[in-house]
Amino acid sequence: MENTPLKTPTDQLQAAKRICQVTVGNPQGLHARPADLVAREARRWQSRIEVVGNSQRVDGRSILDLLSLAAAQGTRLVIEATGPDADEAITALGRLFEQNFQE
């Protein structure tokens, strides 16, 4: 995954895109409770949040979407945030994974 090159300041404002790679670290994987935590966090931001993994790209705001990733412990996922607060959103979402959803 690579950032799309940005050409003009306007593009930059509209298309700020941040990406981070995370690994599902908790033994139970991305089950209902962590999926709920991720979706709640994703909804706090204006940016569009997408999660990519297991050959799927899903809406980070949807628990159903996140659960359908079936991301077991050790699964590597890419989180993409696109929008005005992409930086903050990526930081917050990355932290949830780093903390293993406190499990």
């Binding site: 089950h31 979407d65 079936a70 991301a71």
Partner: peptide
């Protein structure tokens, strides 16, 4: 068996989309 639970959730959520 956390894997089975996860795969059941996956099936349910994928179908319900």
């Amino acid at each position: 068996r956390p894997g089975d639970h996860l795969r059941a959730l996956e099936n349910i959520s994928r179908q319900l989309r």
